[in-house]
Amino acid sequence: QIFVKTLMGKTITLEVELSDTIDNVKAKIQDKEGIPPDQQRLIFAGKQLEDGRTLSDYNIQKESTLHLVL
């Protein structure tokens, strides 16, 4: 699992595989929060994550926290 922190300070827990693409992750956030993926920007280690890449491409591990910017 990974964590996604919103600017409102809310933390969302997502069940993911490290082979999941950023697209997949955004879809899971949409399922939980109702935010359309095209409005989501995910940040990790100061970098904006690109849709076609996977979590492992960015060296994101289990229990990592991503930041969601709208």
Results as ranks from 00 to 15, higher is better:
Lys10Met: 05
Glu17Thr: 05
Leu18Trp: 03
Lys5Val: 14
Lys10Ala: 07
Thr13Cys: 10
Leu70Ala: 15
Lys62Cys: 10
Ala27Cys: 09
Gly9Arg: 08
Leu70Tyr: 11
Lys32Thr: 09
Leu18His: 07
Gly9Asp: 13
Tyr58Arg: 02
Tyr58Cys: 14
Arg41Lys: 11
Val16Ile: 09
Leu18Phe: 07
Ile60Leu: 05
Asp23Trp: 07
Ser56Ala: 05
Ser64Ala: 12
Asp31Glu: 09
Asp57Lys: 02
Gly52Met: 06
Ile60Gly: 01
Ile2Pro: 00
Thr6Ser: 04
Glu15Lys: 10
Val69Phe: 08
Arg41Thr: 14
Leu68Trp: 01
Gly46Leu: 03
Leu49Lys: 00
Lys10Gly: 03
Phe44Asn: 12
Leu66Met: 12
Lys47Arg: 10
Lys28Ala: 13
Glu33Gln: 02
Val4Ser: 00
Asp31His: 08
Ile60Asn: 03
Thr6Leu: 03
Met8Glu: 15
Thr13His: 13
Ile43Gln: 15
Val4Thr: 02
Ser19Met: 02
Phe3Asn: 09
Ser19Ile: 08
Gly52Arg: 08
Thr54Gly: 09
Ile22Asp: 00
Leu70Met: 14
Arg53Thr: 09
Glu50Asp: 04
Lys32Asp: 14
Val69Gln: 01
Gly9Met: 02
Val69Leu: 12
Thr21Gln: 11
Val4Pro: 01
Leu68Phe: 01
Gln48Trp: 15
Glu33Ala: 03
Leu7Gly: 15
Glu50Ile: 11
Ile29Asp: 00
Gln61Glu: 12
Gln48Tyr: 14
Tyr58Ser: 13
Ile35Asn: 08
Leu7Met: 09
Pro37His: 13
Tyr58Met: 13
Phe44Met: 13
Gly34Glu: 13
Gln61Tyr: 13
Lys32His: 12
Ile60Met: 05
Ala27Asn: 04
Thr65Gln: 12
Ser64Leu: 08
Leu55Gly: 00
Gly52His: 12
Lys10His: 06
Asp51Cys: 07
Ile22Tyr: 02
Arg41Tyr: 12
Gly46Val: 03
Glu63Asp: 11
Gln30Tyr: 03
Lys5Thr: 13
Asp51Phe: 03
Gln48His: 11
Asn24Ala: 11
Thr11Arg: 11
Leu42Thr: 00
Gln30Lys: 09
Gln48Leu: 02
Asn24Phe: 07
Gln30Ser: 05
Pro36Gln: 08
Leu49Gly: 01
Gln30Leu: 10
Ile12Tyr: 12
Asp20Val: 10
Phe44Cys: 10
Ser19Asn: 07
Gln1Leu: 12
Glu17Trp: 05
Ser19Glu: 02
Leu14Tyr: 08
Gln48Asn: 08
Gln30Glu: 09
Lys47Pro: 02
His67Arg: 05
Ile22Ala: 11
Phe3Glu: 05
Leu70Gln: 15
Leu70His: 15
Val4Ile: 11
Ile35Gln: 03
Asp38Cys: 05
Ala45Met: 13
Phe44Gln: 12
Ile35His: 07
Ile60Trp: 05
Ile43Phe: 14
Asn59His: 14
Thr6Asn: 08
Glu15Gly: 10
Gln1Ala: 02
Leu55Phe: 06
Val25Asp: 00
Lys32Trp: 13
Gln48Ala: 08
Asp20Ile: 11
Asn24Val: 11
Ser64Arg: 06
Gln40Phe: 03
His67Cys: 03
Lys28Asp: 12
Asp38Ile: 03
Ile12Thr: 08
Gly46Ser: 05
Gly46Glu: 11
Lys10Gln: 01
Glu63Lys: 10
Thr13Ile: 13
Ala45Asn: 15
Asp38His: 04
Asp57Gly: 13
Gly34Lys: 12
Thr11Trp: 06
Thr6His: 02
Ile43Ala: 14
Arg41Pro: 02
Glu63Leu: 02
Val16Tyr: 12
